[in-house]
């Protein structure tokens, strides 16, 4: 008798229809009892991702650091047959100005109309840098002599007229090893990268 009544008399409240109570999506909304609150964090896959990230970043790692000041005003040209860049005074030539080690030397518009080849302010600054290098390195043990290296970091659209004058000024100041800073690219960079590695070693 009582069992019969249990089936007929139900507790008031929301309850699903027979079909809905069996649904995987909605059935749980009417489920009785509490869910377990312990969540097992899946650490294995997270550690896998971390390890892969570390390996990728170690491959990218370079102990040389940034030798050039990268700026959006200078879009460097690409080349495939490059060598490893070395620390040397950096002359930057953008469409508007010429600067050395980040300090502005001259406006391109001002020097464009001048007749003579050299840029006096640049030449003077380079001479000062050469003198400072020689003074600092003169007393150092195993010091190498002044090699006359200079890096030119120019925008790819700068006309040769400006580059020529910078090169001439560097030459007058005693910097004969002129290096054009370039970005890796232009096809065949793998071979060039190998060369760069060799020169590094």
């Amino acid at each position: 008798m009582s069992r019969h009544l249990e089936n007929v008399i139900v507790k008031p409240g929301k309850r699903p229809g027979k079909r809905l109570s069996k649904s995987k999506v909605f059935g749980s909304k009417f489920a009785k009892g509490k869910h377990g609150t312990n969540i097992e964090l899946n650490l294995t896959s997270m550690i896998d991702v971390f390890v892969l990230l570390v390996i990728f970043l170690i491959q990218q790692f370079s102990a040389d650091g940034d030798l050039l000041f990268m700026t959006d005003k200078i879009r460097m040209p690409e080349a495939a047959n490059f060598e490893q860049i070395v620390r040397a005074p950096v002359v930057q030539i953008s469409a508007d100005e010429i600067s050395i080690e980040g300090a502005r030397i001259a406006q391109v518009a001002d020097i464009e109309g001048e007749e003579y080849w050299n840029i006096p302010a640049l030449e003077e600054k380079l001479r000062d840098q050469k003198k400072a290098y020689e003074m600092v390195r003169a007393g150092a043990d195993g010091a190498e002599g002044f090699k006359g290296d200079i890096n030119i970091q120019a925008d790819k659209a700068v006309p040769f007229k400006i580059v020529k004058r910078v090169m001439y000024s560097a030459n007058q100041a005693g910097y004969f090893n002129i290096n054009f800073a370039v970005l890796a690219g232009g096809g065949g960079s793998a071979a060039a990268a190998d060369d760069a590695e060799k020169s590094k070693g």
Binding site: I58, F61, A79, F180, V182, L183, S189
Partner: peptide, 20 residues
């Protein structure tokens, strides 16, 4: 990961040596 992200160099820069 933090250290390597901070020190990562994303652009490879080289030089073309010329003389005047």
């Amino acid at each position: 990961i933090t250290f390597l992200m901070m020190t990562a160099v994303w652009t490879q820069i080289g030089k073309l040596q010329v003389s005047q």
